[in-house]
Design a protein around this nucleic acid. Structure first.
Length: 496
DNA sequence: ATAGGGTTAG
């Protein structure tokens, strides 16, 4: 039992864990009910479990000291080892003297639904409420936002509504805030009609405020129905609610998104004429809006105008302009603006860098892109998952899989861990080359990603299997097949 | 506690 020896070793070494009764934990592992088959755990996974174990202790400790500030870095770590996180959660759950805090629940619900779908969501909430081991008796309101979102993403919006309506049974108020969160989740998933019906039915009861109206108006804008959004705004005014600057900004954004550039521009002029306090966000929206439809000159003009009118551009405004130039003009022009902003004392952030780096990659200037990536640290922003994914993708497209792998190696050892996309890009690149060694590497990547709780698509498995069988690597093929069956991704009617 | 500008390939 490798896991057990791991645990006892780490527990005796790590002072942070000594508050936990080792015997208790080991006994739990021995009777093993309810826990995943621990014999099948790979070494790496066992190590992650330990890591997670420590994490959860720390999360709970942190929350105890300071309920508002979570150990964000620690939390992020949990997300990269979803399976291990679930496992640890349940081990701790079974310990009589251990209890989870509301925030741990929040994290675990989020993780569980990512890995297992919506199957256990209701169970979690019910359990959360009833569990006598948990002194802070009410779930964090944010937990509900996550549950709403997961149900809606799984195509079960009515379940989300149901949970909302039964919130009070789980120890949480059905208040305006929760109502707005539900509306927002529905709107963001483009189920605006449903949100609107709900809104109309309950707006009196929950005393809908500016935020509710903004959410609904924004929802109509998201599905490009600006007329409906406008109606909502009118209604809002009729009911005596004063629109805020963000109300106007979202309307403006809606026009540009719907391709109604002319209306958008007129709306902007109207805002000016009526003496709205136009802010940077407004200008940024317009610059970006013109950019999307390819009106480089107009975007530039607005950018220049704003300074004259006494509104300084922000980093986001610069980012918008740079993106416009990358897409519709040339990377060189974009770089000029980039350097100009640096000269003026702005500090580009990760998004700005990502835009420039993407532009450079797109026009084949990989060295320059790498140079900028190195520069990011000087500006105190680290490359994030998007940065890595873009550069790796373009390296792979150019057939330089090694360079992609090099970056991938950096990711694994650093703060920024690969996601599903990263794995997919790299593995696809390996299939293109069809080298026997590549297939081995791809196979290892596959094992690693399953370990981390990602569920690879069926065809990825099949491709690797085909490749391995063609190159005569029967043994490895068998391993992969076993993995495929464990992830529930076997071909239909297939028996091992 | 809830909304609110800038990043994603073909």
């Amino acid at each position: 039992m490798r896991l057990q020896s791991y645990l006892s070793k780490t527990l005796s070494k790590n002072s942070q864990c000594q508050t936990i009764n080792q015997n208790n934990l080991l006994k739990h592992l021995q009777d093993g009910n309810n826990s995943p088959q621990q014999d099948n755990l790979s070494e790496q996974l066992s190590a992650s479990i330990i890591n997670l174990f420590i994490c959860f202790r720390q999360i709970n400790a942190t929350v105890q000291d300071n309920p508002t500030g979570l150990g964000a870095a620690r939390l992020r770590l949990c997300y990269t080892h979803s399976i291990a996180a679930l496992y640890v959660f349940f081990i701790l759950f079974r310990l009589a003297h251990h209890y989870h805090w509301a925030n741990s629940f929040l994290v675990i619900i989020d993780i569980s639904s990512e890995v297992r779908g919506t199957k256990h969501l209701t169970w979690y909430i019910t359990f959360h409420h009833k569990n006598i081991y948990m002194p802070p008796p009410r779930p964090h309101p944010k937990t509900f936002a996550i549950v709403f979102e997961r149900y809606v993403a799984a195509g079960k919006p009515d379940r989300a509504v149901k949970v909302f309506l039964s919130m009070h049974k789980h120890g949480c108020d059905r208040n305006l805030c929760a109502f707005n969160m539900l509306l927002d989740v529905l709107c963001k998933s483009k189920r605006v009609e449903m949100a609107f019906d709900l809104f109309r039915a309950f707006r009196g009861r929950f005393r809908a405020d500016v935020v509710s109206y903004n959410i609904i108006a924004n929802g109509w804008c998201l599905i490009k129905r600006t007329n409906r959004a406008l109606e909502v705004l009118r209604e809002m005014v009729e009911r005596g609610l004063e629109p805020t600057i963000s109300t106007y900004n979202l309307m403006l954004k809606g026009y540009f998104r719907a391709g109604q550039v002319k209306q958008g521009w007129e709306f902007f002029l109207k805002m000016k004429k009526r003496g709205c306090e136009i802010d940077v966000v407004t200008y940024t929206t317009v610059v970006h809006g013109f950019g999307v439809v390819g009106e480089v000159e107009k975007a530039r003009r607005v950018f220049d105008d704003m300074v004259k009118e006494g509104c300084l551009p922000s980093v986001a405004t610069y980012t918008a302009l740079i993106q416009v130039l990358c897409k519709k003009s040339s990377v060189e022009d974009a770089l000029v603006v980039f350097e100009e902003m640096v000269r003026k004392g702005y500090v580009p952030n990760t998004t700005t860098y990502n835009v420039v780096i993407r532009g450079l990659c797109h026009s084949g200037k990989m060295e320059k892109a790498m140079e900028l990536m190195g520069r990011m640290k000087d500006d105190e922003c680290e490359p994030n998952i998007q940065t890595y994914n873009v550069v790796i993708r373009y390296f792979c497209d150019a057939g330089e899989v090694e360079k992609g792998m090099e970056l991938f190696g950096k990711m694994r050892s650093g703060e920024c861990l690969p996601n599903l996309d990263t794995y997919n890009v790299l593995m696809s690149a390996m299939f293109v080359r069809k080298k026997a060694d590549d297939l081995l590497v791809a196979g290892k990547l596959l094992i690693e990603m399953v370990d981390r709780g990602f569920v690879p698509r069926r065809f990825i498995f099949n491709r690797i299997l085909n490749g391995l069988l063609l190159t005569g690597n029967q043994w490895f093929a068998k391993e992969i097949l076993r993995l495929q069956s464990q992830s529930g991704r076997l071909p239909r009617h297939f028996k091992l």
